[in-house]
């Protein structure tokens, strides 16, 4: 049993990070009923922007570059944690602007457009950062491993889990305890109501998309040191996120968190016994849940069912 512990820790960490990705996703689905297949690409962009911020060859020879690279990694990493999500948010908003002609049409068009956008982002990443796998460096303090009860744990995974937990809590506070959250939630129930309350619906959509994209970008930065960075990571990530919101129930906060933890744990524990099949477990989980309950664990009825 004790040998399972690291796998459970892995699964929990993965689950919390999945939850962070899925929350942005579910916000966007909830407010504009768009399945954003480019969500994973925003995740990737966040991480790649962080990579560029922390530093590389591209500006090392400029005077600013020399000064910047001279700063401690902790400072640069903290800056990247802000810059990456911001730029991801900007990219997300650009996608939202492209999406506007598809509003009011079948949800298929939003899906298709964002699929195209994902393809474009992936190619852009290949073009700018190359096709190889890259590593995002992290400060020494959260790097390395420690021993506990005779088992080796990675410090970074604990950092990642704690960070994700804090971010999820902040999102919850934002949604439940601020007026902005109230408007967003109103928007996901009824866009007419938002208009009736005197808010600009198109601005709300833009901001929600940006906010969701920022969460994706943040998750990207945190997950990149665990998974590594490659151009097609966007598609690798969006599918789990997608599955999670469906398992959890479209538009449901706690559904997304619960499903993410379930998926993370099932991937982690399958990883203990049959590592080659660990990613398969989430598809089987999806088929099992959705086969019996179309709207997911905690979902309410959604326009997307039709």
């Amino acid at each position: 049993m004790i040998e399972l512990l690291p796998h459970i820790v892995n699964g929990l960490t993965l689950g919390l990070l999945f939850a962070l990705i899925a929350l942005g996703f579910t916000l966007i689905v909830g407010v504009m009923e768009v399945i954003n297949l480019a969500h994973g690409s925003l995740f990737a962009l966040g991480a790649y922007f962080a990579l560029a911020t922390i530093g590389g060859d591209w500006f090392a020879s400029t005077e600013f570059g020399i000064w910047w690279l001279g700063l401690p990694i902790g400072t640069r990493y903290a800056t990247a944690l802000a810059v990456g999500p911001l730029l991801a948010a900007a990219s997300g908003m650009a996608i939202e602007l492209c999406l506007r002609p598809t509003y009011g049409k079948a949800p298929l068009y939003g899906l298709l457009l964002t699929f195209g956008a994902a393809l474009v982002v992936e190619e852009v990443i290949r073009l700018v950062w190359g096709t190889g796998e890259q590593n995002l460096s992290v400060p020494q303090a959260i790097n390395g491993a420690f021993l506990m009860g005779g088992l080796i744990f990675s410090k970074y995974k604990f950092f990642a889990a704690a960070f994700a937990l804090a971010a999820i809590a902040l999102v919850w506070v934002f949604l439940e305890r601020t007026p902005y959250g109230a408007i967003i939630k109103a928007g996901s129930h009824d866009s007419e109501m938002v208009r009736a309350l005197g808010y600009d619906l198109s601005k709300l959509r833009l901001l929600v998309f940006g906010f969701g994209a920022a969460l994706a970008g943040l998750a990207g930065i945190i997950l990149a040191p665990i998974w590594g960075l490659r151009p097609h990571i966007g598609l690798d990530v969006v599918i789990p996120a997608f599955l999670i919101i469906v398992i959890g129930g479209v538009g449901s906060f706690w559904g997304a968190v619960l499903a993410a933890l379930l998926v993370g744990m099932s991937v982690g524990i399958t990883g203990a016994y049959a590592p080659a099949w660990s990613m398969m477990s989430m598809y089987l989980l999806l088929i099992a849940v959705v086969g019996f309950r179309a709207r997911g664990l905690l979902g309410r009825k959604s326009a997307l069912e039709n």
Partner: peptide
């Protein structure tokens, strides 16, 4: 499995099954 669904849920189920077959082919 999928014929009582339509729309996004249908798309999603077909993605999931597609991935299962793809995974199986690799493994």
């Amino acid at each position: 499995f999928v014929s009582h669904r339509r729309g996004i849920y249908f798309a999603l189920m077909t993605i999931a099954f597609g991935q299962v077959f793809w995974f199986a082919a690799i493994k």
